[in-house]
């Protein structure tokens, strides 16, 4: 029988990297993504006893992470605001890297939330339509439609770029 600490250690080892990258796409900020993942695991750790294995660990953690990201997006704005950064100190454009893949990553990050989340869960987290739909609180049919539209948007964006 695993102790909660052992469970957490296992979960972190297995899911930290994909969650980091998922959060990075959602938040478009690496530092915030790191915060979000830490917050995700903290929430998971605190509610381990209530996790009933009805969903896979990945689905469960992803759902938590997306919720954390939603809060963090607000937090990010607030953080910038409270720092009162003058315009010329704001971050410069990120350097180009890894060509097409990075461009597609940018395009995914720029998708509207519901489309972006659908792509991330289905294509990146490799969830089934049913699993992803459950996380996003929608139906598989709707999710399927979102995926189709997301692909269409990405296609337009990438081809235009």
């Amino acid at each position: 029988m695993e102790s909660p600490e052992q469970t957490l250690t296992r979960l972190v080892a297995a899911h930290q990297r994909p969650l980091l990258r998922l959060c990075c796409v959602v938040l478009r900020d690496a530092a915030l993504a790191e915060d979000a993942v830490q917050e995700t695991f903290l929430k998971a750790y605190r509610s381990l006893s209530g996790f009933r294995q009805e969903a896979s660990e990945k689905t469960w953690l992803t759902a938590i992470a997306l919720n954390v990201c939603r809060d963090m997006r607000k937090s990010a704005w607030w953080r910038h605001a409270t720092q009162s950064l003058p315009l010329d100190t704001l971050p410069l454009p990120a350097p180009e890297r890894d060509g097409d893949a990075f461009a597609l990553g940018q395009a995914i990050a720029r998708l509207p939330g519901k489309y972006r989340d659908a792509v991330l869960l289905y294509y990146y987290q490799d969830m089934t339509l049913t699993e992803a739909a459950k996380v996003l609180n929608t139906s598989p049919a709707t999710l399927s439609k979102r995926l189709a539209r997301a692909r269409d948007m990405l296609h337009r964006e990438v081809t235009q770029a």
């Binding site: 790191e34 993942v37 990075f102």
Partner: peptide, 12 residues
């Protein structure tokens, strides 16, 4: 998508 998200999120 895997490649794209990994590339985009590599900074984290």
């Amino acid at each position: 998508v895997h490649g794209a998200v990994d590339a985009y999120g590599a900074a984290a």
